[in-house]
């Protein structure tokens, strides 16, 4: 199944809006994680606007595909995608991280339509996704489960407990993306605590592994198709990405992991978008 040029243009246009939201909402909040939100933004846009069988009007519909943002600090990207998809009003985005607001600093499924799991403490999302995938198999349902991990996040031991279990239970209804932007809070992942080579580790745990450019919609969607057609084991899509993608002064700069842009920086960023 080949993706049309129109679809790519549509996704590109939505991703641009999502990136603008990420800048505006973190600037307004005065805190948050723009770098890792921008790096996974194209993957999330592709999932919600082409892949996932979901209905914003029925966020808890039992047959829906599931998505778990294991790297919960990329919440601004997910919130922006959910707002664009129509799960809640875009005005909510500007209340991110404010007292009494729906949108918490890290995803809180209790209060936010469209969130399938509460995340933020790293390493926990793949386990929850396993539970969803196992429940789907048990109930003979067709839904698929997607999870997005950070590359630094794979330093957490629980990720590998979970990876072992996904392969053991042959969860071919589960697809994990790794947002491979190469940076974590204290520096490059290879300097802080190298989880490399991530692809080889997933392979060794019994996963089907696909390498892609995480900013190329054609590659993202082709990989998802390949994952759907892979039987008897889960698929890991290791997506090479750029932290801060789309905002020149943020790209590949470690400092933008957990720092919000000032008003002036936000204006400069929006000009580039």
């Amino acid at each position: 199944m080949s993706i049309t040029q129109e679809k790519i243009e549509e996704l590109t246009s939505i991703a641009r809006k999502v990136r603008r939201h990420i800048i505006e909402m973190t600037a307004e909040a005065g805190s948050g994680h723009p770098g890792g939100s921008l790096s996974c933004c194209d993957i999330l846009t592709a999932l919600y606007f082409d892949v996932l069988n979901v209905d914003p009007k029925r966020p808890t519909w039992s047959e829906r595909d599931r998505f778990v943002l294991s790297k919960g600090h990329a919440a601004p990207a997910l919130y922006a995608v959910l707002a664009e998809k129509g799960y809640f009003a875009k005005e909510e985005l500007m209340r991110l991280r404010k007292t009494g607001a729906m949108l918490q600093g890290h995803p809180d499924m209790k209060g936010t339509p469209g969130l399938d799991m509460t995340t933020g403490s790293l390493g926990q999302g793949l386990s929850a996704a396993n539970g969803m995938a196992l429940a789907g198999k048990l109930d003979k349902k067709d839904y698929r489960v997607y999870v997005l991990l950070g590359d630094g996040e794979t330093e957490e031991g629980q990720v590998w407990e979970a990876a072992m279990a996904s392969a053991h239970y042959k969860l071919d209804n589960l697809t994990a993306f790794v947002d491979h932007n190469g940076l974590q809070i204290d520096g490059p992942i290879t300097q802080v605590m190298s989880p490399e080579k991530i692809q080889d580790k997933f392979k060794a745990f019994g996963w089907h592994v696909i390498d892609i450019d995480g900013h190329n919609f054609r590659e993202i969607l082709d990989a998802v198709e390949e994952a759907k057609n892979t039987k008897g084991r889960p698929t890991a899509i290791v997506a090479k990405t750029v932290k801060g993608k789309g905002v020149p002064f943020m790209e590949n700069v470690v400092d933008w992991h957990g720092k919000a842009p000032t008003k002036e920086q936000a204006e400069e960023a929006l000009k580039a978008l």
Binding site: S62, M117, A128, G131, A135, E161
Partner: peptide, 28 residues
């Protein structure tokens, strides 16, 4: 047996998987 899942010696994943089951209406 179909409703029993041995998660091996991995308690963190045990709890996280139980959480995922619960989001799908199961009582783990």
């Amino acid at each position: 047996p179909e409703r029993f899942f041995n998660m091996g010696i991995a308690e963190q994943n045990l709890m996280g998987t139980a959480a995922g089951f619960a989001t799908c209406g199961k009582i783990p």
